[in-house]
Design a protein around this nucleic acid. Sequence first.
DNA 1: CGTGCCCTTGAGTACAATCAACGTTCGTGG
DNA 2: CCACGAACGTTGATTGTACTCAAGGGCACG
Lengths: 239, 239
Amino acid sequence: MIDTHLMKLRARDRVSEEEERAIRGAVSEVREFAADKTIIRAGEDLTVSLLLVDGILCRYKDLSDGQRQITELHVSGDFADLHSFTLKRLDHNVMTMSRCRIAIVPHERLKAITEQHPHLTRLYWFTTNLDAAIHREWEVSLGRRPSLARIAHLFCELQARLGLVGLVNGDGYDLPLTQTEIAECMGLTPVHVNRTLRELRERGLLEFRSGRVSIPDLAALARVAEFDPAYLYLEPRAR
Amino acid sequence: MIDTHLMKLRARDRVSEEEERAIRGAVSEVREFAADKTIIRAGEDLTVSLLLVDGILCRYKDLSDGQRQITELHVSGDFADLHSFTLKRLDHNVMTMSRCRIAIVPHERLKAITEQHPHLTRLYWFTTNLDAAIHREWEVSLGRRPSLARIAHLFCELQARLGLVGLVNGDGYDLPLTQTEIAECMGLTPVHVNRTLRELRERGLLEFRSGRVSIPDLAALARVAEFDPAYLYLEPRAR
DNA sequence: CGTGCCCTTGAGTACAATCAACGTTCGTGG
DNA sequence: CCACGAACGTTGATTGTACTCAAGGGCACG
């Protein structure tokens, strides 16, 4: 049930049997959520963290004029808000982008982990630092990359992150997002995303239709995106 | 010497005498660095973290065409790279923007803290999550805010963060940045930053000259920026 | 078989970038 | 003490990427 989560951790460091038991024991329940529901609102007092088992989630912030900026996407195996354990409330909302299965992890059980499992604590600390690294890479996209590279980069990132948990198949992966949501990730308008996706398609770099991403030539796409996966810290290492 | 650091921690949670001793004992040495020096390069193996005692630092990433994106600014009392403790190498560079005094904290001593001081560990975990929150807010600026609000927001953030460590005086604060560096933070060109600063000045919202920021009417500036300091988690709370 | 959501395309616009030139300040060396 | 150069800041003119506004098409669902 939390297999993708363990895959992700074990891609970065060793997780002992005992630690695995601690992780499994930290889940209090598993719930299903419909698509397009905001499940955490900024400012709420939080006493649990959410571990995404299946589906796609995002973190987003609203602006006063109704615009929204998505700050990160989450895939199977990600904690959506492990950081709420230390922050106690969030500065952003969390929303389902598809039907989702989510494991609930009470903060008191995470606290017990910090008291009893220093290594696992460091590993979880690592994962929130990884979220920050993803935020930084998005800052680069939003601040400096032209729209073509910006969108190409997003799809490269998702290919890498989904690949890690076995969700890449054939020449691509399933991604139940709308063009409007892509726009909200990358600071563009839906119209411009549409034109940019067309250009990617015409260049033979990427197809994105009805929730499915096809990447005929990943190396070519990565070149356009100037994608360097170093920021995803994919190599195992003692933490 | 690390007083601003303790001020910052204590603004967010209680720090016991024993914890304070552990923090002080974690510093191995203090060094001085000249301005405009890259002191950590992306990808290097790291065994220490850097705690900024005095000066201004930034995290930045380079693009292949020579552009750069600054992803966060650091002020006195901030760890520049506490996240390198779990990441072991960085996905970004760290550069001095002024003459800086920096305390060196070996990772092995941080590791000891994670083994012996769970509460302090959570508090330090919190501070890296705060960095991520700042990254998210910058994503919103970079993705969605027009240039005027974008720059106004940056100066509001710095006012709040410098205020926390007693570095706001009179109607503003010292900030030894060039317009080009502001541009690198906010995804704009130096020329456009110049025009935008002029507009802020003409509207009576902000003066920025020779390393000094003056904000005659902070409330008005915050209104233009739509600045909400919630993302800085300024209220104390048990972590 | 509407109705609504999403995608697509066209036309015109605007904000910010680019290109270019000049001013100011400051440090340095003759 | 002044001449020079470099870095930073300022302004104008022009260009361009992405936005806005608008309309129509495809498809799923009730």
